[in-house]
Design a binder for these strands. Sequence first.
DNA 1: TCTAACGCTTCCAGTCACTGGAAGGTCAAG
DNA 2: CTTGACCTTCCAGTGACTGGAAGCGTTAGA
Lengths: 131, 131
Amino acid sequence: MNIGTVSEKSGLPAKTIRYYEDIGLIMPGRDTNGYRQFEPSDIHRLAFLARARSLGFTIEDCRALIALYTDRDRASADVKELTRQHLGEIDRKISELRDMRKTLNDLINRCHGDDRPDCPILNDLAGANVS
Amino acid sequence: MNIGTVSEKSGLPAKTIRYYEDIGLIMPGRDTNGYRQFEPSDIHRLAFLARARSLGFTIEDCRALIALYTDRDRASADVKELTRQHLGEIDRKISELRDMRKTLNDLINRCHGDDRPDCPILNDLAGANVS
DNA sequence: TCTAACGCTTCCAGTCACTGGAAGGTCAAG
DNA sequence: CTTGACCTTCCAGTGACTGGAAGCGTTAGA
């Protein structure tokens, strides 16, 4: 299978697949013409990566997950721990964004938003913490 | 004032302040020895930037906000609109993260997390959508 | 058989917002 | 006079791609 087909089947852009080869996440063989030759198992692996990435795992997480996936003697506790750590980071990001959201929303509500220059948003940014 | 003092007062690393000069967000003068010379107004401007960045505005947003801030004829509606768009993006990110969170949490709850290799998390990543 | 259009290859550069580090000049204290 | 802190510039790296150029390979149609 050529890269175009694999791209379509895995849902990953060809560019990304080549990049994943660069960083050693997949190792397709080569045809006599130099084209990458993919096996059905590569599609599976790439779909695995696509799913993990869409869940916000970093590339290094993915590397670890793939290693665990292909390790017959793995302990599910290892996978769970990695996932738990990742969940913790997501929670941190969510609460950070929620803090931002709250502040921005307050500011928007306080800004009359007409053609006058007076603006609580800019005042806040400028450090006039009139709350 | 030298960059170290300004760094301390604005809360931004010296590196970042130099970077902001590179991209034209501040334009400090220079002393005869080549050192950057900052005015008190520069601290104000940098603190403005630090605050806007901490609220998740991009550098380009910051550029626009600074322009609006220094424009005596600005309309507060413009600021409000920019902020509203930014809020929209934050909301999008939050809901994306919440989706991830939910999926990951479900997976964690389904994974027994012991020393056996069987693992619903890896199964899900591999595409076996056993829900 | 020729040709156009597409698919594949590599390599280089850019994204965003910094951050780290090297090599070197400047300044104040002891 | 030396030490150490502070300043300068420049280059490279981060993460995870993405865009584009230049140049082959392949295939479908006239």
